[in-house]
């Protein structure tokens, strides 16, 4: 059989079983790279954060919680919003604005529509830099890999810069370690995330919770929120 005839035969076979694929929802859960297709716009809803463990703080964590923060400030002052400071992951992943996921074999990015910094998740097999070369940043250094049908992201190297931390209102630090597992629902309409926050400086045991995002329609497009601190109220320089 010639190459073309074989190809046409195989194509016909795929066409024949396509309706069955549609019935079981497989068509929406695969992509050309052979992994579930997480790409597109996703949005949380009320109740999207689920199964959150009660954080178990170290003494240092308890002391840190008593420092002024956006939750205990009677004026509700949040410097992040007043000064348009960048928001970082994982905190911005489960806020109200949509996320947009773009993946190729080399890298994945998850873009948050509010003022944030690009999040680079390297999927080319590189390890985290060793401690001597690990530069602390708001989003940390993130690597991702597929474990079956789960996309697993491991992040280290967080800075203590304002931008909301992984552990409620406490800033991240160099001991913060975040593991995020993303999995598509069988019908492709929901994205389920499981977060594990390890931070021996602030926590006596890992904090864990789940987040559900809902797929936005294909007509969704990014609407950037441009924050200009010259226009924000209560900004003092």
């Amino acid at each position: 059989m010639s190459t073309r005839k074989l190809s046409l035969t195989v194509s016909a076979a795929i066409a024949a079983i396509a309706p069955w694929m549609a019935v079981v929802g497989l068509h929406s859960a695969v992509m050309s790279a052979g992994h579930p297709d997480l790409s597109g716009f996703w949005e949380p809803r009320d109740g999207s954060i689920q199964n959150r463990t009660t954080p178990s703080y170290t003494d240092a964590g308890k002391a840190e919680l008593k420092k002024p923060n956006k939750l205990n400030d009677p004026n509700g002052v949040d410097p992040v919003n007043i000064y348009c400071l960048p928001l970082g992951q994982p905190w911005d992943l489960y806020q109200s604005a949509p996320l947009d996921i773009v993946q190729d074999a080399r890298e994945t990015t998850i873009m948050y529509e509010n003022h944030s910094l690009p999040w680079h998740i390297y999927t080319d097999g590189r390890p985290h830099p060793d401690a001597a070369h690990l530069k602390s940043t708001l989003n940390g250094h993130s690597t991702g890999e597929w474990q079956g049908d789960e996309f697993v992201v491991d992040s280290v190297g967080f800075s203590s810069l304002p931008g909301h931390g992984a552990v409620t209102v406490i800033p991240n630090n160099q001991t913060t370690h975040v593991i995020e597992r993303f999995k598509l629902s069988p019908d492709g309409k929901e994205l389920h995330g499981h977060f594990i926050i390890e931070d021996p400086q602030w926590l006596t045991k890992p904090d864990q919770f789940d987040v559900v995002w809902y797929r936005n329609p294909p007509s969704e497009y990014a609407v950037p929120n441009i924050c200009d601190p010259r226009n924000t109220a209560n900004a003092h320089y």
């Binding site: 010639s2 190459t3 073309r4 074989l6 190809s7 195989v10 194509s11 795929i14 079983i17 694929m21 695969v30 992509m31 050309s32 790279a33 052979g34 190729d104 074999a105 080399r106």
Partner: peptide, 25 residues
Amino acid sequence: NVRIFAATLAGLFLLAGLPVRAAQS
């Protein structure tokens, strides 16, 4: 022909649940 064959073969791998690595742009 080769490209069609490669694409259809990739489709079969997907159906079988076997890993297929997309060509990187």
